[in-house]
Simulated scan of single mutants.
Amino acid sequence: MERIRNLMPQDLTSQALSFDPVLPWEGQEEAVTRREDGSIYLRIKAPQAKRVVFVIGEKEYDCVQDGQGVWGLRFPYRFGFHFVQLVIDGAEVLTPLLPIGYGYSRPYNFVSLEREGEDFYRLKEVPHGSVRREYYYSTVTDTWESCLVYTPPEYEEAEREYPVLYLQHGHGENEVGWITAGRVNFIMDNLLAEHRAVPFLIVMNNGMVQTENSQGKRMVDYQLFGSRLIRDVIPFIEKRFRVKKDKINRAMAGLSMGSIQTCLTGFCHPDYFAWLGVFSGFMHDFIQGSELDMVQRENSTNEHLALLEDKERFHREFRLLFRAIGEEDPFLNHFYQDDALCRDKGIRHIRKTYGGGHDWNVWRYCIYDFAQYLFR
């Protein structure tokens, strides 16, 4: 019989409520194991179940029962970050035996497996910064909001002021994504230890801005984020933290929906930001008027792109426009459309592609590269 050993990848310590991995209780099994051939297996004990499925990348994978009530699945990937949805007899289940993050607009299980030789996002023996949760009152949503703030390792001892990157997630995620899935704090710690980046703060907000419609129903209006950032977040951060308060020392970046928010905000407020990052990454706003737009607006006229008509002014206002995407991204056509726009308007920018799709395995590389350009 093939020997099976418990798999304890470093990333599996990234529990939502516990740094240490959750130990299986009596009668339950380790959720992730690795066999000698390197293959990964997911396992869950559900003796009364008739069908157990893991949904990975929006595809269903049926588990096989071993006769002892334990259901198993050979995981279709050997490395990378992947959201997984456990479904038992048609009911979606959140298991505490796998790490819990936030995706698809709700708490969600994930599996994160490190690739050999890929260590830029790992927890290493280097000085570490801090990640803290802050609370502020928003005049835009008229309620309390929260953000996460990364401060570099030297922040507590130094007395100087620092630049700031306002970093956004994608649709269906929230402010914890860049930490739990993106591991941006460890990426920055490692870059700083290797002297590949200058120290700066990172502020992560929830871009799925909740509000109420005229009937009092809760909904998301992603376009409110820019106003909240300018009116509420930036003043709060600049009052609470030792940060520089001019546009040369402010950057904004985001992935997917966050990239659209970055362009909507940055292009409309060039007096606020000098550095923009567009990850998997769209300059046109194709969310407005689509099925993702809960406000049910007409399609966007993309008025924010008017700034690109004056390339000399654009290049005076912004020191960097960074655009990047995965080579298997299903939204590549939108990226190509923006390629043509930049080419036609004569807009200088840095453009990168990475192996992978529309997922955190690409976005980790995006922030790793983007961070090394900032505030130089």
Rank of each mutant, 00 (worst) to 15 (best):
P127M: 03
R74W: 12
V243K: 04
E303K: 13
Y155I: 10
I287L: 13
I260M: 15
L276N: 06
V131S: 00
C268L: 08
Y166P: 13
D20M: 13
P235V: 06
Y102L: 01
F273I: 11
V164I: 10
W25P: 10
P152N: 04
R196P: 03
Y102A: 01
V55A: 04
H284E: 14
Y41H: 15
E154V: 14
V53F: 11
I367W: 12
V70Y: 11
I248G: 10
G117L: 03
E173R: 03
M257H: 06
P96Q: 02
I88H: 05
T33Q: 10
I56V: 14
E157A: 11
P96S: 08
R316M: 03
E298D: 14
F81R: 09
E156Q: 07
E238H: 03
A181G: 01
R228F: 07
P199C: 06
V22D: 00
F282T: 08
D66C: 09
I347S: 07
G326N: 13
F286W: 12
Q296N: 12
E303P: 04
K50Y: 10
L332D: 05
H315N: 03
E30M: 10
P47F: 03
E92T: 12
K311C: 04
Y365L: 15
K45Q: 12
D329R: 07
V22F: 01
G346Q: 02
Y354A: 06
V126P: 02
R240C: 02
S280V: 13
N206R: 10
Q210I: 06
L308I: 00
R160L: 01
P127C: 02
Q168G: 04
F318I: 00
H334S: 13
N205Q: 13
S300N: 08
V198C: 10
Y365D: 05
V53K: 02
R5T: 14
Y272D: 04
R78F: 13
E175K: 00
Y41F: 15
L7F: 15
R78C: 08
L276P: 09
K247T: 10
Q215Y: 13
Q168E: 10
L167F: 12
D37I: 13
D344Y: 03
F79R: 02
I230R: 02
Y104R: 04
Y155F: 13
F83R: 03
K247L: 15
V140P: 01
I179D: 01
Y135K: 07
W275Y: 15
E194S: 07
H195A: 02
Y166G: 12
F331K: 04
L321W: 05
S130V: 05
V362R: 08
Y135H: 05
G182F: 00
I100L: 11
I367G: 04
E58Q: 10
L42C: 14
R231T: 09
E291V: 15
G90L: 02
D66A: 08
G226Q: 09
S18C: 06
C366L: 09
I347T: 07
T141F: 02
P199S: 07
Q223R: 14
H82K: 14
I350D: 07
T180G: 00
Y368K: 04
Y365M: 15
G355D: 12
M208D: 10
F282C: 09
L123A: 01
N109C: 06
F225Q: 14
F335G: 04
R348V: 05
R5N: 14
F225E: 13
P99W: 00
